[in-house]
Simulated assay, not measured.
Amino acid sequence: MKNASEIAAMMRHLRLVLVRTNFPENIGMAARASANFGHAPLYLAEPRRWIYEKALPTATSQGKPLLDSITVTNSVQEAVAPCTLVVGTTARTGGARQQLITPRQAAAEIAERLVLGEDVAIMFGPEDRGLSNEDLENCGRLVTIPTAPDASSLNLAQAVLLMIYECFLALPDAARIDAHPNLSRRVTSEERDFLFRTLKNALMDIGTIPRDNPEHFFLPLARFFDRADLRRHEMDIFMGICRQMEHLVSERSDDKS
């Protein structure tokens, strides 16, 4: 399993190329998004407005190092020159924009390249028009982000966030979350059988299931417990309930006698 430093090293081979950006604030938000998912470096190709002080507030302290190390180039070609794969993003379809893939499909291929230590670029167009057909000539893959038909245009920083998130998830072992960090171990077959016998007897004692055919009536409950993926601490809770039922049945019997 790869550690955080190895994941970060791979993500640094991913260039986020922002082409002819208009608003420094979007650059700052893109820097923050990149910081959240491994610090992929930012490249500004032919920026129309690049004002560090305006980008800094939206970058926050997390994205500031990326702003401090940002690379400004005079052309798209210069920004992507060493990359073995260039992925362009577009909201428009048709014409020269054929064979589009989703961010998740692109991320799978991008991750393969990053694991090998190859440089990859994802290009994002200006806020008003997106990437031009000339820009897309530099791209080996075209990605479109599926949206509602009546609102297909995304904010630049939102598009960056979605793309880098998918790339981060696609890396091996990058984002594996323990779904049950505080749970005890699963019960063994022996423990399961012991719980079922105890619970079945307790339910018979209180008259919930008949004694003449208890297995038939207990089966749905057994299936329920099996679907619940029972843990040892949960078994202990139900064993405690069974003991209480046995205690109450015993007290009732004593009162009658």
Rank of each mutant, 00 (worst) to 15 (best):
G95K: 13
T102E: 06
Q62N: 13
Q62K: 06
R97S: 03
P103Y: 03
P65K: 05
A59V: 05
A108I: 12
L56D: 04
Q77M: 09
L116I: 00
V115N: 00
S61P: 00
T71D: 01
I51E: 15
T89R: 03
L44G: 10
P103C: 07
A59T: 06
G88Q: 07
V72I: 13
G94L: 08
P57T: 04
Q105M: 14
K64L: 13
E112H: 03
A55L: 04
A45E: 04
R97D: 01
L116R: 09
W50I: 12
S69P: 02
S61D: 12
Y52G: 05
T84F: 01
R92P: 03
P103N: 08
Q62E: 14
T90Q: 01
A45C: 07
G94Q: 06
V76I: 12
T73E: 02
P103K: 03
A107C: 12
P57E: 03
T93Y: 00
A108V: 11
P65R: 01
R49C: 13
T60V: 11
A106C: 08
L44Y: 05
K64R: 14
T93V: 11
A81F: 09
W50S: 14
G94N: 09
N74A: 14
C83I: 10
A96L: 11
K64D: 02
L56Y: 08
A45K: 04
W50L: 12
T84H: 14
A45T: 12
T60N: 10
Q99W: 14
E112L: 05
L114I: 01
W50F: 15
R113Q: 03
S75H: 02
T71A: 14
V87M: 13
I70N: 06
Q99V: 03
A81H: 13
S69I: 00
L67D: 04
S69Y: 06
L66D: 07
S61K: 07
I110M: 11
A107G: 10
T93H: 10
P82F: 02
K64G: 01
L67A: 10
A81Y: 12
L116E: 00
R113G: 03
R48Y: 05
T71G: 07
N74S: 14
L66W: 08
V115H: 04
A59W: 10
L56K: 15
C83W: 09
A81M: 15
P82D: 15
L100S: 09
I70E: 02
N74L: 12
I110C: 04
A59Y: 11
V86G: 05
Q98N: 12
T58H: 11
L66Y: 08
A111V: 00
A111K: 02
P65L: 01
P65Q: 04
V72N: 02
D68K: 13
V115I: 01
T60L: 13
A81R: 15
G95S: 09
A91T: 07
T58K: 11
W50T: 09
L66V: 12
S75M: 10
L66M: 10
